[in-house]
Design a binder for these strands. Sequence first.
DNA 1: CCACGGATGCGCT
DNA 2: GCGCATCCGTGGA
Length: 171
Amino acid sequence: MAAQLIGHWCLRWTEGQWVGGMIIETEAYLAAGDEASHSRCGITKRNQSMFGDAAMLYVYSIHAKYCLNVVTERRNVGSAVLIRALWPTYGIELMQRLRGQTDPRRLTAGPAMICQALGVTTADDGIDLMTCDTIRFARNPRRDLVVHAGPRIGISRSRDLPLRFVYSNFP
DNA sequence: CCACGGATGCGCT
DNA sequence: GCGCATCCGTGGA
């Protein structure tokens, strides 16, 4: 599922316009056998959205920033995909303002950068993508890009699992 | 109440 | 490429 999300559009309606871009990097966090997953210790107030139905958003805060996940399994399972990077495409000027950065290379090149550029906070935690009209994941028809799997970034446990997915032939 | 760690990013070199 | 600022949530007293 994390690999399938690569290439999708990730779009956000904020301040009267669509902003966002194409997903070029994701990481999967599993319900079982994954010591790096927030779901590993069961449901808490913070991670309860991760145990919601598929297509629910799980937004958590870390290092005084926010990260956006999409739940991938049915209710009470506890598996999600972290959106790690976008290729910025829509509403670049607004994203630059929200980020306080003009360098396109530092606009949506990390999970917390994405949330800042798209105006996503924990207020969006628990939102259902199927019924939400301010965040939208849309399929992208292009099939010319190759997805590469590798180890995840920034974690200390379960580093060996190849659950990070990136485009291997995208600029 | 408070200490501490974290699925990070900035600012330099 | 790397050090460290930053601050919220969590868990233990």
